[in-house]
């Protein structure tokens, strides 16, 4: 069987903050419709990986192809317009804007503006809670609601690939469950997802394949089942 052309392909990507190098020659692929997980200890460079893909920081080396197009070095606003939405670490909502305004920000890219009303209705349907809270300031939402809002905001741009950086971080266990349910819904909607998670056990139930990132390098990759069966992963992340 021929490999399908990947939606996203990173090839030897390096990135740095000033003099500090955080990624060393990272290569990974995401096929259309796939859900891919990235795990790794704190400071491994997971967030940096997401930032490089979404254009918040430029790659120092290597190539990033999205749907066959080289997007490495594009500024973030072009990448969103190109179809990659990034739900950032810690959600980063605009706390003093209402939920509705946060969602409107998500639809800022010209191509998304025309379908704003339609997508808004769809996001509200996906997350009825957001509709109830649409006039509330985002900063006053509960943690789980904020995560819904952050995901909803990302969906408003009409992405084909969704990057999620630790969507369950800082949430109570029950809420973590809810967030994973959310992500499952997103998957069911047919989105391609690249997700970073500390809750490795739950994440592995959700993704097709996963990568292990450590000190800026890919240490391991495989299907969810392979990783679950790996003794190192079991010891370090699954508490077995």
């Amino acid at each position: 069987m021929a490999e399908p052309q990947p939606m996203l392909a990173l090839d030897g990507v390096s990135a740095a903050y000033g003099g500090f190098q955080a990624l060393f020659g990272v290569s990974l692929t995401v096929a259309p419709g796939e859900a891919i997980g990235v795990v790794g200890p704190n400071g491994a460079g997971k967030t940096t990986l997401m930032r490089v893909i979404s254009g918040l920081i430029p790659p120092r080396q290597g190539r990033i192809a999205f749907e066959g197009q080289q997007v490495g070095g594009w500024p973030a606003h072009r990448i969103v317009a190109g179809g990659i939405a990034h739900v950032p670490e810690n959600r980063r909502l605009f706390p003093a804007l209402s939920v509705a305004d946060n969602l409107r920000m998500g639809a800022f890219v010209p191509a998304a503006r025309g379908r704003y009303a339609e997508r808004l209705a769809w996001v509200y349907e996906l997350f009825p809670r957001l509709k109830e809270r649409q006039h509330q300031l985002a900063g006053t939402l509960s943690g789980g609601e904020q995560q819904m809002c952050a995901i909803g905001r990302a969906l408003m741009s009409g992405p084909r690939l969704l990057l999620m950086d630790e969507p369950s971080a800082g949430l109570a266990p029950v809420v973590v469950e809810q967030v994973f349910a959310l992500v499952r819904r997103i998957r069911a909607e047919g989105f391609t997802v690249l997700i970073v998670e500390q809750n490795v056990r739950q994440m592995l139930e959700l993704v097709d394949r996963a990568y292990l990132l450590d000190v800026g390098r890919i240490r391991m990759s495989g299907t969810a089942a392979e990783l679950r069966a790996n003794p190192d992963i079991q010891r370090a992340y699954l508490g077995m």
């Binding site: 254009g55 605009f94 800022f108």
Partner: peptide
Amino acid sequence: TFTGTAIRAIAQDRQIMGLMGVE
């Protein structure tokens, strides 16, 4: 308007404006 909303948003978080497609 979208631009107006971006104007109200930008002071709250400059770094992620790019993720919203805002320059």
